[in-house]
Every structure is written in structure tokens, then in C-alpha cells.
């Protein structure tokens, strides 16, 4: 017969014991009233602890006070990380586009540059003669830049979500 297996009683109670030891403890408990009594007391104290602390409820104002403490500000590190991720994604996109279409883009860019210079000469003759038309053209260009900026932001936002 096993010596009083007092050090095993909690593990026996919690069913956290290997099969061989479990059988030894069980056999001992059948013949040792002292250990059986200790086991009953441990079980009782375990049940009391679980029911007493399990019934403890947090104060209702806790949630509100946490919310006030964190405010509606974003945690700075999360901001920094998402901005960094966006910048990296942009750089990767540009690099990929360049890798794939670099040569083509360069040719297009050069010819577009030549055409635009020729066009500028032509248009400036017409616009130069009427200043209000010139102001309209600048205004339109600014609006176009602004609108494309907004749509780009939307696109990026919907992609990250």
C-alpha cells in the first residue's frame, strides 16, 4: 500500500494525474479514512472558492472609465504601423510597375513630353490672347488633381479593409 499520498490529492481531485498513480491513490483512499477526509475537505474548499469568486461581478462603471481613459484617440503605434505599411506597399507597387513596364513607360514618357511641348506652343498662343481662359485651365487642372487624390485615397482605404 502507498504511503499517505497527500501530495497527489489535488491532482487526483482535478483529474490531472497519470492512470497508474490515479489507481494507486484510489486504492489508498478506500482504506485510509484520514486521506479520504482530507480529499473531501479539499473538494469542499475548491467548490467554495469557485462559487464565491465566480460570482464576483465587475463594477458597472469599469467599462465607462476605461473608455474615457483611452478616449477616442488611436494608439500611436498602430497609426505608425499602418502608415509605414502603406508607404511600403506603395514602394513595392511602383517597383513592380517599373520592373514590368519600365522600358515602355520610358518611351511613352519621352514621346508624351515632346508632344506636350509642341502642344504647349500651340495652346499658349491661343490662351495668351485671353487671360480668363488661362485661369479656367489652371482651375480645371487643380480640380482634376484634387478629385484624383480623393479617389486614390478611397481606393487605398477599401483595399486595406
Amino acid at each position: 500500500m502507498m504511503e499517505h499520498p497527500v501530495e497527489w490529492l489535488s491532482a487526483y481531485l482535478d483529474d490531472e494525474i497519470d492512470e497508474k498513480t490515479r489507481i494507486q491513490v484510489r486504492d489508498h483512499l478506500e482504506s485510509c479514512e484520514s486521506c479520504a477526509e482530507t480529499l473531501r475537505e479539499l473538494a469542499e474548499i475548491q467548490a467554495l472558492t469557485a462559487s464565491f469568486y465566480g460570482a464576483i461581478e465587475p463594477p458597472p462603471e469599469l467599462e465607462q472609465s476605461v473608455r474615457q481613459a483611452i478616449g477616442r484617440k488611436l494608439p500611436p503605434r498602430a497609426w505608425f504601423r499602418s502608415a509605414l505599411a502603406l508607404a511600403l506597399a506603395d514602394a513595392v507597387c511602383l517597383a513592380m510597375v517599373w520592373q514590368l513596364f519600365g522600358g515602355l513607360v520610358w518611351i511613352l514618357w519621352k514621346s508624351a513630353y515632346k508632344i506636350s511641348i509642341a502642344a504647349a506652343y500651340l495652346v499658349s498662343d491661343g490662351i495668351g490672347s485671353s487671360p480668363s481662359l488661362y485661369a479656367w485651365a489652371v482651375g480645371l487642372a487643380l480640380i482634376l488633381i484634387f478629385l484624383s487624390g480623393i479617389s486614390l485615397r478611397r481606393l487605398l482605404r477599401s483595399e486595406t479593409e
Binding site: 469568486y53 465587475p58 463594477p59 473608455r67 484617440k73 488611436l74
Partner: peptide, 22 residues
């Protein structure tokens, strides 16, 4: 909440305030 959404974090507080407080 990791993206910085305070409403999502409040939901986490609601769910874990019991175990944390106990």
C-alpha cells in the same frame, strides 16, 4: 482593435472585464 478601432476595444473590455476583475 489592433487597427485602432476604440469601439472594437470596448467590446473586448465588455467581454473580459469579468475574468480580469475577478
Amino acid at each position: 482593435a489592433r487597427r485602432g478601432n476604440p469601439d472594437a476595444f470596448t467590446e473586448l473590455v465588455r467581454r473580459f472585464q469579468g475574468p480580469v476583475f475577478r
